[in-house]
Amino acid sequence: MVKTAIRADEVFAILQQVHDPEIPVLSVVDLGIVREVRDDAVAITPTYSGCPATLVIEQAIRQALDAAGLQKMRIETVLFPPWTTDWITAEGHRKLEAYGIAPPQPSGAVLCPRCGSAQARLVSEFGSTPCKALYRCGACGEPFDRFKCH
């Protein structure tokens, strides 16, 4: 069935089911990369220029839209304004923390997602993906990823 009219909040609900392939606990909506939903298009903004997940995310969004009967809805890539971690939703922050990744705090604070201690030490500016840095907790010893403020 090809749908002709759909409300933006219904499209957001569909995209809430599309997950980031590298941080599967987050949806593309939590991540803040869905910038706008119009009658005929969804606008997305990639996170990092070289993020390998970008293409996979676009394909996953395409599949989800098609499955919902929205074959005619286009996907537009918008580069400006550039994506920032400020666009990660409050829900996204909660999910990251529960998953063991320290969310990006605007204050720059790094709290251990395991024990909550602020005594974290940077191990490497670059972690397992472009968006994360590697830390170790000074209190409980747990190594963990931190979502970089970007």
Partner: peptide, 20 residues
Amino acid sequence: LEVDLALANIALDLTGQATL
């Protein structure tokens, strides 16, 4: 290992910028 990850990450950023 940390240097390996860092240099690969920087390379990835640059390749992404090149694509754009």
